[in-house]
Design a protein around this nucleic acid. Structure first.
Lengths: 312, 312
DNA sequence: ACTTTGGATAATTTTTCCTTATGGCAGATT
DNA sequence: AATCTGCCATAAGGAAAAATTATCCAAAGT
């Protein structure tokens, strides 16, 4: 594959513009023979004459002009590629494939997207919402850049960093609002509604109650926190939801939300990504945005609780 | 201007496709370290990471993919430029700027264009019709590629080759048809209509009659052969026209056309171009086409004369 | 004829690029 | 746990490419 070089193309373009070897050469900051040779080589590899060397004139041939047109196009593209590289430096931009588990996504994302979109014009976030194992797999396959999950994950190939901790709160029918807060063990006697198998949140809740996840349970599983809260509102039982979900899920349901006394159940939400990912710094920026978003949500939650307290 | 090379772009593209240094390297017919180094250099000059090197995986980064898209575009363009060079080899194609003098253009061009256009798809002929001195000047300025003129031209910077010889024929009013053909000197006594100054054909005709071109003449000049023939038809005088013009110019005029006895006046039509022009071989092809066209025209002329002879 | 201009050529050095050999890390294997 | 293996990075040496300076040569201008 006998091919010319970009350098030759640049020299060629200069000569085409200046129509003078000496001037073109100094425009390229090289000596005149160097340019002569490169042009000669270029013509040789092309098998065609680009310039007509007159006694006192250098002019493009018919073919040379056609060639020059395209050369200019190529050089422009190449320069743009350089710009692109420069532009994508440091700054968070381009496509970012973000995985989020279902017990976080609906509550965090609106705020997070707002947060990121505001400061990072040209950032294209693609969200994948699914269960932790799938997220991990896709991450390791390189189909995701980072994911927000409950820690720990414990995959050696993945780096993980905690973002925030959040309590699990007890959701009861309004009728139970005044009753004392049960201990962890006490929940076992109640009809505890949980998410379907596979959700890490389910496992965490069960483990808080010292229940074996494998234990077969009567059909009390819901496919989303929203469903669970509605079921609670209908008096079917009680459930746990993460702090972050309170504002959204209890807005339109007749339920009572209470925190536990110590030892309070919590989960650590964190960010994971491939150790080998060069996006580390950019993912760091996302982490910060998530922390800010979580903080905002927590503040909202606090005012909500306050209001609820005043109302009751 | 720290810039990458086409070679790097090709290596990069291979690696992007294979996602494996070893295989990409052998696809490029180089060693693996060579490819590693070129990729590293490329990333360095870009100031951005293109690939995510996993333990057992090589994948494009976000930026890498964007870069790869453009790289493919550039490589495609570059390959096309190579094709272009190959395609423009030997074969006559592209733009050809052809100058022709006015006493040839209208008669030769229709046939010539047909001749060339038939065999050379993609040939773009641009015709410039003007007097010889202008053609020569434009040729030397590089604004024309070649020209068809009467030889000799005698410019040292120009190459010239004869195409064909053609007689000058006497055009007289029909009334004079039977009269004997005058000698060259005899024309001096007649009202000889000629083209305006500047036309080489005028000078050649005058020289045939041994008249000094500078001699002031009464307003008997026409701006085209067509005009002259019309004037002859109107009985104003006689004129000379080149053989090639007969078929066209005498079709709709009541005139008689006669050849001279020896010494017959002739002119040599030829082709000229810059010695430095790389189009030599292509111009040669044009020359051949002109010869063929001239031959065709001469044949037409012969049948015309025959017909005229039968009619009279 | 002589000088000047401007590109080509020659000889040499510098830079770039490739090769082979080797190091090292992370999965895979036993 | 220890070893193996695949795979990329690094190192060192040599070949190729490209730059430089110094001429050379042809054609234009004087």
């Amino acid at each position: 594959m006998a091919d010319f070089t970009l350098k030759q193309l640049r020299y060629f373009e200069a000569l085409a513009r200046h129509e003078h070897f000496g001037r073109a050469a100094s425009a390229c900051a090289i000596s005149q023979p160097a340019l002569s040779m490169q042009i000669r080589d270029l013509e040789e590899t092309l098998g065609a004459v680009l310039f007509e060397r007159g006694a006192r004139q250098v002019r493009l041939t018919m073919f040379g002009e056609e060639f020059a047109d395209r050369a200019r196009g190529v050089l422009r593209s190449v320069d743009e590629m350089g710009d692109l590289a420069r532009a994508s430096q440091g700054r968070l931009m381009g496509r970012l494939r973000l995985g989020v588990i279902p017990t976080i996504a609906p509550y965090l994302l609106p705020t997070l997207i707002g947060e990121l979109g505001r400061n990072h014009e040209g950032l294209d976030i693609r969200v994948r919402e699914t269960l932790t194992p799938k997220l991990i797999a896709e991450l390791e396959e390189g189909r995701l850049d980072t994911a927000i999950v409950a820690l720990p994950v414990g995959e050696p190939a993945l780096e993980e960093v905690p973002l925030f901790e959040e309590d699990f709160l007890l959701v009861r029918p309004l009728a139970d609002a005044g009753k004392p807060v049960p201990e962890a063990e006490g929940l076992r006697g109640m009809r505890l509604l949980l998410l379907e198998e596979g959700h890490c949140f389910r496992d965490q809740a069960l483990s808080f109650c010292n229940l074996t996840p494998a234990l077969p349970r009567d059909g009390l599983d819901g496919s989303s926190l929203s469903t669970l809260v509605q079921m609670v509102g209908a008096g079917i039982g009680v459930t746990l939801i993460p702090e972050m979900a309170v504002a959204v899920e209890t807005r339109s349901a007749a339920v009572s939300v209470t925190g536990f006394d110590a030892p309070r159940p919590t989960r650590t939400v964190g960010m994971v990504w491939r150790r080998t990912s060069p996006l580390a710094s950019q993912i760091n920026e996302v982490s910060e945005a998530v922390r800010r978003a979580a903080h905002t949500l927590r503040a909202d939650h606090a005012t909500l609780l306050e209001k609820a307290a005043r109302t009751s």
